[in-house]
């Protein structure tokens, strides 16, 4: 970047430098002098030996700067191309992953039937977990709603629907989900269903879950994959964010997806 910034100034200075560089190369005499000097035919020389031979320091600096700027420019162009290629590869990989294809049929925390088509036209951030989860689910849900709050505070951005889907249908009924989601965000939607319905939606989003052994209180921990999913208004799986991503990073990514989104349904 520095080289690129310097390059235009270097170009402007070129005409000023030329006259300075000229005297040493006037009439090809410089070359002549060099030859004589090297062959020692006339050790006394012409009295010009003390002067710098070849291109002057400034010229050499200029050439180096121009060469560097060229290299820098080529590097930037290559990097932009690589970035574009990477983006294409990622989009293609996500498309081929075929995550979240097909429909789902679940109940929200108010007992209403919900299917995937109900979310068409909305950006959705979705997380799978369970209400008896000790620390990771509440942390991730807190992060998810933080992203939603950040985005809804920015005028001009489309609203984002936060969704929490349980992987513990045995305990997480409609009432349990209602109690749980109210702690996080007024618009957070809790989804539950029968064991089969939950298995189906989890499979569709490649979410693994496995209930651990029950203790005396009939309590257990459900081991499950942790990722926040972004669905576009077309209902298509668009991106996912692991635990290491911060709310700011996720919000940035969602903003980028919103800026480049073109519906394929119309």
């Amino acid at each position: 970047m520095l080289l690129l910034a310097l390059a235009p100034r270097a170009w402007l200075r070129l005409p000023q430098l030329k006259p300075l560089a000229l005297p040493s190369t006037r009439g090809g005499e410089s070359l002549h002098v060099t030859c004589r000097f090297l062959s020692r035919q006339s050790p006394a020389g012409t009295g010009r030996q003390g002067q710098p031979q070849g291109p002057g320091l400034r010229t050499r600096l200029l050439v180096t700067a121009l060469f560097g700027a060229g290299l820098g420019g080529a590097w930037l162009a290559a990097r932009a191309k690589k970035e574009q290629w990477r983006q294409q590869q990622r989009t293609e990989a996500l498309r081929q992953a075929a995550v979240g294809q097909g429909d789902f049929s679940l109940l929200d925390h108010q007992g209403h039937a919900r299917c995937k088509a109900d979310f068409r036209g909305q950006w959705v951030l979705m997380y799978f977990g369970f209400t008896h989860c000790p620390d990771i689910c509440p942390d991730e849900l807190e992060k998810l709603v933080q992203v939603v709050r950040q985005l809804e505070a920015e005028p001009g951005l489309p609203p984002v629907q936060p969704v929490f889907i349980t992987v513990d249908p045995e305990r997480d009924n409609v009432e349990a989900m209602a109690r749980y989601v109210q702690d996080f965000h007024p618009r957070l939607l809790g989804l539950t269903g029968s064991a089969e319905q939950v298995a189906q939606v989890s499979r569709s989003y490649r979410v693994y879950y496995s209930a651990g052994p029950k203790d005396e209180d009939q309590d257990y921990i459900v081991d499950h994959s942790i990722a926040i999913y972004l669905l576009s208004p077309d209902g298509l799986f668009t991106d996912y964010y692991g635990r290491a991503r911060s709310a700011e990073q996720i919000a940035d990514s969602v903003r980028r997806h919103m800026a480049t989104f073109r519906s394929v349904l119309h």
Binding site: P134, D217, D219, Y220
Partner: peptide
């Protein structure tokens, strides 16, 4: 904390 969580946090 629930008993199950204590086991979980000890392991954690």
């Amino acid at each position: 904390c629930p008993q199950q969580w204590i086991k979980y946090f000890d392991k954690r």
